[in-house]
Nucleic acid binder design. Structure first.
Lengths: 384, 384
DNA sequence: CTGTTAGCGCTTTCAG
DNA sequence: CTGAAAGCGCTAACAG
């Protein structure tokens, strides 16, 4: 049926060794050997033949042999969500700087799928597993997840959580509560007094933190969030859209500004308002959270909390290697002395408001890096 | 320094075998053996002990042993770009249905980086390599890329290209030229006569195809695209923004509608117009291409060409396995007879306008699947 | 059906 | 500095 199955096997290290007239060991050392433990001339010969044969090291074999792979596993809720894809971009950049390959999977916000995926990904024996999706607080399978992750760490891996620090692992902390509080205060200072909100499902920690932080911020200014003006919806663009419709149905005469707990929901909400001919911000102002790229491109531009999303991704992998002085270099053959731990891209942590913050003194709980958030006022909440 | 390095090694298959009191082979067969080639009782015992020990198969070892991994490598230009992240979502969904893990990397539209990444990823010996980023036509390193990819295919892998069929591999064809032609005709039929455009860098095939298709469409209606009203910019949101500014600087009195070759550019352009107080669509209408999710959320909503982006991703992996009746099942131990090739998610190809289309009769050029595009008129180009 | 025994491609002691 | 040899964890003939 097919032409003639040209499937010949890949070039192996021994092919190279033979062609170069050296032993397997020498070939291996020349191609990888951290230090230059091989005669320059020989090494050159090996490198050259490898090039000619278009040799590609079999990463799996390397992983098996040295008992450690060169991959990083990243779990997100949804790749197509700009929040996650921005973080992913940062992770990929930082990983590549360290010569690591990243493997991604999407949980669709299901705890079961998340657990299943962690199991599968563990099979790769990744150096790091990054869990970027927010969790539910009343988590049923939380126990299992922690057990699985613990087991993984005991085999030498590192897990890094992004967002809340409610699991005993290193985490890149996005202090949503504080951020939302800042936002609320700023908004009050701008003149707003009566608020509504659109949140994700109850129990989704990110959403809960943001809404309660927001309420706290209002409280600090002597205001309260009218719970009848808080609607719960799916944590997505469509959820935001539906949430806004629901709010409209309930009546918003007494609401000046709606806070959606994420930009993506806020943007959905704005579309709903537009479709319902409710002028933003004149009839109703809107604010979001995250500062995803499109926040600037909707009309009116969205007031939100800025988080350096790609810095988050970089911070996650930097955190994973904090202290382990790892610095695999994928690009050339430069012998630049590997400087201290987390050399590349340490700017990640700095870029945020808070700096690296060795919280629980290592050990059981892992370390914490805070990435701050800043209020960004745009046209969706004009000064009044 | 650290507590006490609990780094004990992972549970291995032989640990399980020993604990269950069976041979390595039996354990292996119980845990994976396609057919049930093991006594039920024994198998149960193995499965049970595996569970108790929390055993996770070492994918790398499996890969080395069977000479084939269970990964799919996906190369995109930029994960944070909604066009690519939507495709990625589709790839991940389809891959998972087949029990495959996906590995991602971003080229940043650099041919050199693309080549380098293909080399690195080949190290994983992935079953499939999907190249989703658009290429440049005058490609310098094209030769090398093709050589590398060819070599990869000769070792049994499959490469799938997404977008243009200008490299001799299977491809999910997005017929940009035809789509843009349709769009142009429709716009003319709506009453528009004088057009401007914002394109990506010359030579970027996707961009070139769309702009020439658009010009063709106009030509079919007896109109021509005024080249002085075509500006070239970076293929990104900011490029669109700058492109629009440039257009404004050149003067747009004689332009009724600007076609940006991608939604992301169109959205950047709309922001520029908003900032410059040019009313859309009254002073200037805008149209894009791709129908990314946010196209609906900008104001006015963007007229564009709809491509089922996640179907594209699914089609890519379906195409990779077309005819090879692969159907690894990651989830349970169900023994549902693996139906024909590409069983899961064959809807992908169907969803598009064109169906699966075994073009070059297999072999040298690979197969082709077309995914169609449909005009979606929204408020940014009202009827006139 | 089950166990033995070779490898898979690579790294890494351990001798020379 | 270099080579021989022993694995890494798992699969796949090959015998029983």
């Amino acid at each position: 049926m097919v032409k003639s199955l040209t499937n010949r096997s890949p070039v192996t290290l021994s092919d190279v060794a033979r062609a170069a007239g050296v032993s397997l060991a020498t070939a291996s050392r020349s191609l990888n050997g951290s230090a230059k433990r091989v005669n320059d001339e020989l090494r050159e010969r090996v490198l050259e033949t490898a090039r000619q044969l278009n040799y590609t090291p079999n990463l799996s074999a390397q992983a098996v042999a040295k008992g450690a792979s060169s991959t990083v596993a990243l779990l997100v809720s949804d790749v197509a969500d700009p929040y996650f894809s921005s973080i992913a971009a940062g992770v990929m950049r930082a990983a590549e700087a360290r010569g690591l390959i990243v493997t991604m999977a999407a949980t669709g916000r299901s705890s079961d799928r998340e657990l299943a995926l962690v199991r599968v990904l563990r099979g790769q024996r990744p150096r790091v597993i990054i869990l970027a999706g927010s969790r539910y607080s009343g988590s049923d399978s939380k126990q299992d997840l922690v057990a699985e992750l613990r087991a993984y760490e005991e085999t030498g891996g590192t897990v890094v959580m992004v967002s809340q620090h409610e699991l005993p692992f290193s985490t890149v902390l996005l202090d949503n509560r504080t951020g939302a509080r800042d936002l609320a205060r700023t908004l009050v200072d701008q003149g707003y007094r009566r608020f509504g909100a659109i949140t994700g499902a109850r129990g989704l920690i990110t959403s809960d933190d943001r809404i309660s932080g927001f309420a706290e911020g209002l409280a600090e200014r002597g205001l309260t969030l009218n719970l009848e003006r808080v609607v719960e919806a799916e944590f997505s663009r469509n959820g935001g859209y539906e949430g806004a419709r629901e709010l409209l149905a309930r009546g918003i005469d007494d609401v000046e500004l709606v806070f959606a707990v994420s930009d993506i929901m806020a943007i959905g909400a704005m579309s709903a308002l537009r479709d319902a001919a409710v002028a933003v911000p004149d009839a109703l102002a809107v604010a979001g959270y995250d500062d995803i790229p499109t926040a600037r491109d909707v009309t009116p531009a969205l007031t939100t909390m800025h988080i350096a999303l790609d810095a988050v991704g970089e911070a996650a992998i930097d955190l994973a290697f904090a202290g382990s002085a790892d610095a695999a270099d994928a690009s050339g053959g430069t012998d630049a002395a590997a400087s201290d731990a987390g050399a590349a891209h340490t700017d990640a942590a700095e870029r945020g408001t808070g700096g690296a913050d060795t919280a629980n003194s290592d050990g059981e709980q892992g370390q914490i890096v805070r990435i701050g958030a800043d209020v960004v006022i745009r046209e969706s909440t004009p000064k009044r």
